[in-house]
Design a protein around this nucleic acid. Structure first.
Lengths: 222, 222
DNA sequence: ATCTGAAATTTGATATATCAATATGCGCGA
DNA sequence: TCGCGCATATTGATATATCAAATTTCAGAT
């Protein structure tokens, strides 16, 4: 991950506030469809159901509202707004942001980043043989992370992260297809080449098309 | 704005919750530099300074954290993270999202939208003579709004709105330049033509370049 | 049967109190 | 003088209480 903290062997991951925990729970419930679009949330009920007070729940709901998953009508209540259309728009947002990141990466990439990308491409191609899907998912993530690092765009990266809505199950399902694995590696390699060649326009276009194409595959699994 | 509510002559704009009000206050303070990057916020102090309790303030801070303007370290405090680099990245995010919206608009635009855009272009060109900058700002906003409506992408639009950080003063200053007014109209016309011609790739590229070029002008005024 | 409106209820918004982790200050010993 | 450790103060996190807007209920009139 990001630079710094080289002295810390582990992160204090066990310290997670209630509001963060609740945020994750409600977000998953919405994205997985257990809380459906249009549904109204009752703060008191939900809080007691979760065994907490309303304060951390309200904070979590504010975050979800800022992300556009719920909408709060003042003095009335909170309604789930997430639906299939928004899922597609979030995929498009991801494409827009990820491709802008790729563009910046193509401008600022260092030779060591290029080397890293190439290594990952080799690993991915090797992974085409094996069918260890979990490994491939991890490789994909590492590949995109290298580009993020190379871009130096921490804010864009963060904003992009908020558009991730695919479940682990959907990822597993998509990468289980032989053809999808092949396409992914092809596209990743083309993107890596564009960035290595310092061609921002090309890198941006390839990344956009890659995210949209693969995103549409994912959206079908929901 | 969006359809519906045709029966209501006015919106109950006066009903704004404390948390929304406070959110706007703190956001402005950060963007205008009155609260500087790195600074720590004290919840109790800030709340009493604003004459409110900590509950609505905490909610406002959660939203600002979701937007990436502040960062909360659990059990430690809240720190302003906004700085010049992030301002530039927010401009890039705007470019990425706005250009994706333009792309979608070029796919779905209706003839009536095209007519609206052309009307606005005519008004803008007329506005080149007069120096009513406030009018020009309003026209610019309406032009972009027409594209947003045409795209049908409510989520992208909303996400894009969160990347607006230019102050009114900066807008005034930028559009006071003769050359900038000319460029803006030229670029708007080219974008309108691309959308009218249903050319998504072109519309996307022109919009991106427009937002980045004009954004860099704005960033200089901060 | 339907509409009206006032009372009762629900519920989001806000304020206050409590808890616990972190930071701070100070005295002691090396 | 410099660490070290404990007592104290600070403060974010959470829980609870209160307020007020909005909804619901239902009696009474038409």
């Amino acid at each position: 991950m990001g630079g710094g903290d080289a002295l810390l062997p582990v992160e204090p991951v066990f310290l997670k506030s209630l509001r963060d925990h609740v945020y994750g729970l409600v977000r998953d419930a919405i994205l997985s469809g257990r809380l459906k679009g249009g549904e109204k949330l009752n703060e008191r009920h939900l809080a007691s159901q979760l065994g907490i007070s309303t304060t951390p729940l309200k904070e979590a709901l504010r975050v979800l509202e800022a992300e556009g998953l719920v909408r709060s009508e003042p003095r009335r209540g909170i309604y789930i707004t997430f639906n299939a259309g928004q899922a597609e728009e979030m995929m498009l947002a991801r494409a827009a942001l990820e491709s802008m990141i790729a563009r910046q990466a193509a401008k600022r990439v260092k030779d060591e980043d290029v080397a890293l990308m190439r290594e990952l491409i080799v690993e991915m191609r090797a992974g085409l043989e094996t069918v260890d899907v979990l490994q491939l998912i991890a490789l994909n993530e590492r590949f995109h992370n290298v580009i993020h690092e190379a871009s130096g765009c921490s804010y864009l990266r963060r904003l992009q992260g908020g558009q991730n809505i695919y479940t682990h199950a959907a990822r597993l399902s998509v990468l289980s297809e032989e053809r999808e694995r092949f396409l992914a590696v092809e596209e990743h390699e083309a993107i890596a080449n564009a960035i290595a060649a310092r061609e921002p326009d090309l890198a941006e276009r390839l990344m956009r098309d890659h995210v949209i194409r693969s995103g549409e595959k994912h959206l079908l699994r929901v």
